[in-house]
Computed example of a mutant assay.
Amino acid sequence: MIPAANLHGRNHPAFLAEQIQMLHAPVAPTLMKLSIDLLTSAPLLPNGAATILAFHVWRYSAMPTRRHFLISFVTTPIVLPSLGHAASTPVELPLTASCADDHELTPAQTEGPYFTPESPEKQDFASDAPGGERLTLAGYVLTKKCQPVAKALIELWHADESGTYDNIGYKLRGHQFTDADGKWWFETIVPGLYPGRTRHYHVKVQRPGGNVLTTQLYFANEPGNQRDRIFNEALLLDIRATSDGKFGRYDFIVA
């Protein structure tokens, strides 16, 4: 952290650039380079300007990245109520559904008009829409007794940042299978809005030998949620802000 005394007493660009480089928290490379270039090439900054710039760089650098959330999610065992414990440290992100013995299944919703069958198997959707806001989408597939389901199918499709679906190819469309611990994740973007709907993802989930769950996932505090005729707050994502986008979590409970 940059000491407050130094911020208020030293406005010289070279000094501030050195302080930024000394930050222990990770900083997005583009922001780091831009900040240091500005500071080292500019004349002495006006009173207060250096303090404000350095503070915002520090604040940005202190935020975790999507990768940090994903690593924590992937490497930390799940705490299942039916087991009462995990193999090691409890997971940092709690289950998005209150899973207990014989808990209710994840609500089903309409497929919508833009589903395309035979999607490719992939996790990286973000490269399909490089201009969109990045979001890592992750979660578990669980049984009604809170047991993780391995090799469950997860199929995802959604609009791009402008609210448009690719109905010709497979941009922002694909599927994958849960790992041995029932975990799944996609690297994608925040979908845009299109007329008549709030912001959402479309998902299909199927455990081996089970029924297909077709549903949708939503964002909290969206103005369109209350106007959307099928919005269901039980399908809200747990969204965390990161320094390079967002991390969204949802755990499906399937039959």
Score class of each variant (00 low, 15 high):
185 W>P: 00
89 T>H: 06
59 R>Y: 10
91 V>C: 07
246 K>T: 01
27 V>G: 01
58 W>R: 13
68 H>N: 11
102 D>F: 02
4 A>E: 11
120 P>N: 04
174 G>F: 07
204 K>R: 15
235 L>Q: 10
243 S>G: 13
74 V>H: 01
82 S>D: 11
168 I>A: 11
91 V>F: 01
178 T>M: 03
65 T>D: 12
19 Q>G: 07
37 D>V: 05
248 G>D: 02
68 H>P: 00
122 K>A: 03
49 A>E: 10
10 R>G: 01
228 D>A: 06
67 R>S: 09
133 E>I: 12
249 R>A: 11
49 A>N: 04
119 S>K: 08
129 A>S: 14
213 L>A: 07
125 F>V: 02
88 S>A: 13
9 G>Q: 14
34 L>E: 13
227 R>Q: 13
28 A>L: 10
195 P>D: 14
169 G>M: 05
139 G>L: 06
173 R>Q: 09
111 E>R: 14
172 L>Q: 11
153 L>W: 07
160 D>P: 06
231 F>A: 05
106 T>W: 01
9 G>K: 12
170 Y>P: 00
141 V>G: 00
253 I>A: 05
244 D>R: 01
131 G>M: 07
28 A>W: 04
22 M>S: 15
20 I>H: 02
72 S>Q: 11
69 F>Y: 15
186 F>G: 00
230 I>V: 14
152 A>T: 05
26 P>I: 09
1 M>K: 08
145 K>T: 12
11 N>L: 08
253 I>D: 01
100 A>C: 08
128 D>L: 05
188 T>R: 06
203 V>T: 12
65 T>L: 04
114 Y>E: 12
21 Q>L: 15
83 L>Q: 14
72 S>G: 12
221 N>E: 13
211 N>K: 11
238 D>P: 00
171 K>R: 15
128 D>E: 05
211 N>M: 03
35 S>Y: 09
234 A>P: 00
78 I>A: 15
59 R>D: 14
30 T>L: 13
138 A>P: 00
145 K>D: 15
147 Q>C: 04
18 E>V: 08
4 A>S: 09
221 N>K: 12
128 D>A: 10
148 P>L: 10
5 A>E: 12
78 I>W: 01
194 Y>I: 03
53 L>M: 15
161 E>Q: 13
157 W>C: 06
96 T>E: 07
97 A>I: 11
